[in-house]
């Protein structure tokens, strides 16, 4: 899939994702070793984007499983379409009647119906959810398990099982084994500690806020119409705001939003008034806003 770390970096760059050497190395390893990658880091640094870009770069379909509290195996793996099964049974009542009409005794009738079980417990009545679709997929896919920290530990344990052998047993149908090992990316915002087992299974990647040079590259790439000087000023301001003692630090996606709004406002450079009026794009907490406003001259200093 990838021949070298440089190639990963190159191809991600072509797909408009600035991958640091670190990120590229881990992606390369994951592809080579067939291991899931666990991506941790603050919100909005491009964790989910990484998986999307990976699917784009490799030309594989992206299957996404968004985790939330209360997510259980059924919703993640598969569900039987009971209503459909019920409906079919109703519609086919006569045929079933015919089938067992000549059965001499009750046990015989049961045996005859049991012989037809396959008709009702087949893939026709199974609705595959993300995990099963990833396993059933005919072509290799990228599986994104987003915000795994939001799901409960039991689900994590179950996921670990799936990720270690990429096979699932559906009691009525038997065991289904993946044709291709999917590339798996898990993301976590660190809302809670993940289990050791899962961490052990995965390659670990911590994505932090990008260094100034990378952030500049990202802004230039995603907001190409931004004047060069303004982009540099935005990066320097954002980096300085991140150094402040805030409740929630501005993420990359927020600095992109800010850059976009500055472009819409036709700004050429950052003036204190302009920053003050657009600051809400960047800083979302009341108290943080006050703090940044208080330190505005420091933020805007060259």
């Amino acid at each position: 899939m990838f021949e070298s770390v440089e190639e990963v970096q190159q191809r991600f760059g072509d797909a408009r994702y600035i991958a640091s050497r670190r990120i590229a190395t881990v992606v390369f390893l994951a592809a080579r070793m067939g291991r899931p990658v666990l991506v941790e880091g603050p919100a909005g640094v491009g964790k989910t984007e990484l998986a999307k870009t990976l699917s784009e770069v490799t030309g594989r379909r992206l299957i996404r499983l968004q985790c939330y509290e209360g997510l259980d195996e059924g919703k993640a793996l598969y569900e039987w379409k009971y209503a459909k099964q019920l409906l079919y049974t109703q519609l086919l009542r006569e045929r079933i009647g015919e089938l067992i009409a000549d059965a001499p005794s009750l046990p015989d009738a049961v045996a005859k119906i049991a012989g037809q079980e396959d008709a009702f417990f087949s893939f026709r009545f199974l609705s595959p959810r993300p995990l099963l679709s990833a396993i059933l997929a005919e072509e290799p896919v990228v599986l994104l398990v987003d915000e795994i920290d939001k799901a409960e530990p039991e689900f994590e344990a179950f996921l670990l099982e799936v990720l270690s052998d990429f096979q699932v047993s559906v009691p009525e149908l038997g065991t289904v084994r993946a044709k291709h090992i999917p590339l798996v990316v898990l993301t976590s915002n660190n809302a809670r500690e993940l289990s050791d087992g899962l961490k052990r299974r995965c390659l670990h990647l911590f994505i932090d806020f990008p260094v100034p040079a990378d952030e500049l590259a990202i802004i230039r790439l995603k907001v190409p119409e931004i004047p060069e000087k303004l982009a540099a000023a935005v990066v320097s301001a954002v980096q300085k705001i991140r150094a402040l003692d805030l409740r929630k630090l501005p993420s990359v996606s927020e600095s992109l939003d800010w850059a976009r709004s500055l472009v819409i406002l036709n700004a050429r450079e950052l003036s204190p008034e302009l920053v003050e009026s657009t600051l809400t794009m960047l800083v979302k907490h009341e108290k943080d806003l006050e703090r940044v406003k208080g330190a505005l001259d420091k933020v805007l200093a060259e």
């Binding site: 770390v5 050497r21 190395t25 390893l29 070793m33 050791d196 961490k199 052990r200 995965c202 670990h204």
Partner: peptide, 21 residues
């Protein structure tokens, strides 16, 4: 897999496989 290309890559490789916290 990565070989001893450069120190940084080697370091990232070990960190990704060993350091989970």
């Amino acid at each position: 897999e990565v070989g001893l290309v450069d120190r940084e890559t080697f370091k990232t490789t070990l960190a990704a496989t060993l350091i989970k916290e």
